[in-house]
Design a protein around this nucleic acid. Structure first.
Length: 493
RNA sequence: CGCGGGGUGGAGCAGCCUGGUUAGCUCGGAUGGCUCAUAACCAUCAGGUCGUAGGUUCAAAUCCUACCCCCGCAACCA
């Protein structure tokens, strides 16, 4: 019996609203999950929110709320996005969950042999109540831009995790693909990054500087800093350590992360796991970032794209389509409303939507909607499955579109409308027509199967339309939309 | 010499690792065909010194060297 499968996504910090990056995480994990389920596997799919830290406390105070009340309000936004995307997650973890907190405290104790007390020195802003990096202090000329106060050079007591002790094992695991970093160039990049070894990482703060966090067991003056708290979610959500279920799922088969947080997931996280005597995840799927018209998406520039808006305007499957096909799974991608709308109108509407319509239309017109027995689609899909295994989802969906095109070509070559003219008087022609259309239906049903992980709603519509042997009328898929591009027919006579 | 990615017809990409048919695909453009369909679909054509300069080879977009340019990252921002 196969191990039960487990996939995770990064847990976003809840001090803002969900953005495209979060959506991409959920989408990629969801595609994988649906694909594995389709192949008969049981999959657990974790999502969650990171809810501790000073920024949260500050935002809460500004909103006149206590931190817990604030996060209770904020995490809902993320949950709403996941639901809107129909991400088929099974577990939602909040780092303020009581089980998570207890579990992390337990983990801290397990890691005791690798934890030591040290002091941290750096530039500190009293207004922000936090340290800033040397680089940031220098950039700002030694003055905090938010508070117009000079940074002070302070030192404070921290607990450190001896990640350096695990450098060799982490490096070895990654090199050997025991912990496989996908794509390959990210693996190279990370190995290069740690060529001088992993550096011990500070995992706590004095309580006076960090109030909103998990208390360090046995030291009332210290509170855990983000690392242990947030990264541990991947196992605490499974019930670690008290509910033995977790052992059926850990190690994770795939952990989806953005390129910006690879270093924590490939460095600190493995060190934590090794320190606790746990297995390393099998794969890290490192996706890129979504640019807008070639520029980085940023709040200050004001070019942020809200995934909910895209879904509202074009529908869920249109969103899932663009972000799975035109944003390369393992690299940066580009979004513009024009590109999006263009691919929607040409690929979804013209290629696929119209194809479904013309096939169902002919069957309705020539055979009163009766399909007969559709043969099994026989298209060789090894390239599709190979791409799915390699986590190159965009390549897989490309393969589906090759099928769409070839079916359109097939129809063009066979010309069912001509056969139909003879079919009224010629029994052979009638049988031939039936075969041709049934073949088209078989191909469409196969396309529908392959789209299940990507476009679940569309796949369901395709099946509903054709699978009963009689055409079931369904709504037009992907009607044309011209909100951001010119309507070519606008000035048609 | 910090690290990584990339420079291929108007745009976006594949091919490069494992050199070898007329350098492939999508979008866009032109022409034609068809009429079942969401004025959709299909075919053909135009267009590329494969960043630059050398080298290896019977043969290089593909391997080697140097250089130019663009983009990320450089430790706590998907």
């Amino acid at each position: 019996m196969d191990k039960k499968l487990y996939i995770t996504t990064a847990i976003p910090y809840v001090n803002g609203t969900p953005h495209i990056g979060n959506a991409l995480d959920y989408l990629l994990a969801d595609i994988w999950t649906r694909y594995q389920k389709q192949n008969g596997h049981e999959v657990r799919f974790q999502v969650g929110t990171d809810e501790h830290g000073n920024k949260i406390a500050a935002k809460a105070a500004a909103a006149g709320l206590d931190p817990q009340g604030y996060t209770d309000q904020m995490y809902v936004n993320f949950e709403a996005l996941m639901k809107r995307m129909e991400a088929s997650y099974t577990d939602f973890v909040r780092t303020t969950d009581i089980h998570h907190i207890q579990s992390v405290q337990y983990l801290w104790q397990v890691l005791q042999p690798y934890i030591y007390k040290g002091s941290y020195e750096g530039w500190y802003c009293v207004g922000c109540e936090s340290f800033v990096s040397d680089k940031e202090a220098t950039t700002n000329g030694g003055i905090c831009p938010d508070h117009q106060q000079p940074y002070q050079h302070l030192s404070e007591e921290n607990y450190y995790l001896k990640t350096s002790a695990f450098t060799d094992r982490v490096r070895q695991s990654i090199t050997d693909d025991e912990l496989k970093i996908v794509p390959e160039f990210r693996k190279k990049e990370f190995l290069e990054l740690i060529k001088d070894g992993l550096q011990d990482v500070s995992i706590s703060r004095p309580k006076k500087n960090l109030s909103w966090g998990i208390p360090v067991p046995g030291d009332p003056d210290q509170v855990m800093y983000v690392w242990l708290d947030a990264l541990a979610n991947y196992i605490t959500v499974l019930g670690y350590p008290d509910n033995s279920d977790w052992q059926q799922y850990w190690p994770a088969d795939v952990q989806v992360v953005g390129k910006d947080i690879l270093r924590f997931h490939a460095g600190i996280w493995p060190a934590m796991l090794l320190g606790a005597g746990l297995e390393l995840p099998k794969k890290l799927l490192v996706h890129g970032h979504v640019n807008v018209g070639g520029a980085k998406m940023s709040k200050t520039v004001g070019n942020v794209v809200d995934p909910i808006e895209v879904i509202n305007d074009y529908g869920l499957d249109a969103f899932r389509y663009y972000f799975s096909r035109h944003i390369p799974t393992l690299d940066d991608g580009d979004f513009t409303w024009e590109k999006f709308e263009n691919s929607y109108n040409t690929e979804l509407a013209n290629d696929l939507g119209n194809l479904i319509r013309r096939v169902s239309g002919m069957i309705g017109r020539y055979q009163a909607g009766v399909i007969g027995v559709a043969p099994q689609g026989e298209h060789d899909m090894s390239a599709y499955h190979e791409a799915m295994e390699k986590l190159e989802f965009n390549r897989a969906i490309d393969e589906v579109w090759l099928m769409v095109r070839s079916l359109n070509q097939y129809i063009e070559n066979v010309k069912p409308w001509e056969i139909a003219k003879k079919a009224t008087t010629d029994a052979d022609a009638k049988a031939h027509l039936n075969d041709v259309l049934a073949y088209a239906v078989g191909a469409l049903l196969q396309i529908g199967d392959l789209l299940v992980p990507f476009l679940p709603t569309t796949a369901a519509t395709i099946h509903k339309t054709f699978e009963s042997g009689v055409i079931v009328d369904t709504e037009v898929l992907f009607p044309k939309i011209y909100k951001h591009t010119a309507d070519p027919n606008a000035n048609r006579a």
